[in-house]
Simulated scan of single mutants.
Amino acid sequence: MILYHGSLEIVEKPAILEPNHTMDYGKGFYTTTSKEQADKWVIRKISAVNQSKVYTNIYSFDEASLSSLKVLRFEAPDEAWLNFVMANRIDKDFSHDYDIVYGPVANDRVYAAFAFYEEGMLDKQGLIRELRAYKLADQLLFHTEKALNYLHFVKAEEVSK
Rank of each mutant, 00 (worst) to 15 (best):
T22K: 11
F74T: 04
N107M: 10
K40P: 15
L82H: 06
V101D: 03
M23T: 15
G26Y: 09
D62G: 02
A38E: 09
G103E: 02
W81D: 00
L72N: 02
W41E: 04
T56V: 13
L82C: 11
N88W: 02
I46H: 12
D97V: 04
S68A: 10
P104S: 13
A80V: 05
Q51H: 13
Y59M: 00
E75R: 07
Y25D: 05
S60D: 12
I90W: 03
Y59N: 00
D24K: 04
W41C: 03
A106T: 15
A80D: 10
T32R: 05
T31W: 08
R89N: 07
D62E: 06
M86G: 02
W41T: 05
V71I: 08
R44Y: 14
S52A: 12
K53D: 14
E79F: 01
E63L: 10
I100P: 11
F29V: 02
N50S: 10
T33H: 09
R109E: 14
S60K: 07
K45F: 11
Y25V: 08
L82M: 08
R44P: 12
G26D: 14
N57A: 00
K53F: 09
T31M: 09
L69Y: 00
L72K: 05
M86C: 05
D24W: 03
V54S: 02
M86F: 00
Y102W: 14
M86H: 02
V49F: 11
R109C: 13
N57E: 01
Y102N: 04
L72D: 00
T31I: 11
V71T: 05
G103H: 03
N88S: 08
